[in-house]
Write a protein that binds this DNA or RNA. Structure first.
Lengths: 147, 147
DNA sequence: TATTGTTATACTCTATAACTATA
DNA sequence: TATAGTTATAGAGTATAACAATA
């Protein structure tokens, strides 16, 4: 009723299936989408975080990408060199540089999000009943906070 | 019945939830597990592929890691320097080097797999009914047939 | 004093091309 | 000729530490 009940639960198999899905199939699909647009993962992530009309500081982008601020310099350098983004001095605090999408950046972002949003065939080919059930359960999974 | 039915399907929301789960939460968790053991992602992947008692050639490891063979030299160099793996000349074909786990490598691998297999709280705290349903659907997604 | 962004440095992963030693 | 593994090279991401400008 304690240990046996724990081990007879399908949690481990679920986790195994999710890991395999995440780390190979989903990742491969995403990598293809991203490199197709000439982006790296961090660049694509940055493009997703940088919403049109909502410029953010370098520091905020570092937080969004969960990496050290020193990395952001290089990542933004390369995106700026490709004309996707611009550094703009902040008049309120002259230490800060705000990041703004260029027109090309906004277009690239739109294409990226559009392609990323397209669900793969494995999901589309589930029955509607399965889809509804899966969606409801995943919402519950996402609602549980860490730790 | 065609376009409206398509768009009213929860496939897009499922995909959105799965992406967010895969690319942030699952990845963060895995990164933590792996770096805790002093490994990088490719090293951990290699450790998983290298089964005890089943030595494989460098080339086979490259295939397993889906990367160019030239990378494997460096990855194995670092694992060998840490005493996790050994290069052994193949007597049948002297071009080939077989990779064998050391004792420390086998122990490291066991710890890694053990920790990776532990499902996170988000899954464990689902109801048993949800777990069974989710497991069944994920099997279908993965193409694994019912047992 | 603290913070923002940058630089310097070092390490790992990634790929391509050229090389060696075998086959 | 072809293959297995390596080396050389280059580029990108990652972190830490130190720095200048600004708050």
């Amino acid at each position: 009723m304690t240990v046996r009940a724990e081990t007879s639960t399908p949690a481990r198999e679920i986790w195994e299936l999710l890991l395999e899905l995440s780390m190979s199939r989903i990742r491969q699909r995403l990598l293809h989408t991203v490199t197709d647009l000439g982006l790296s993962f961090p660049q694509a992530h940055a493009l997703k975080v940088l919403r049109p009309g909502h410029p953010i500081a370098m520091r905020e982008l570092a937080d969004g990408l969960h990496c050290d601020p020193s990395n952001i310099t290089g990542i933004v350098d390369r995106m700026e060199a490709r004309g996707l983004v611009e550094r703009v001095a902040d008049r309120a605090d002259r230490r800060v540089k705000k990041l703004m999408l260029t027109r090309a950046g906004r277009e690239h972002r739109a294409r990226l999000l559009e392609r990323m949003a397209e669900p793969p065939v494995q999901i589309r080919s589930l029955s509607v009943a399965d889809q509804r059930a899966l969606c409801a359960i995943l919402r519950r999974v996402s609602g549980v906070r860490e730790r």
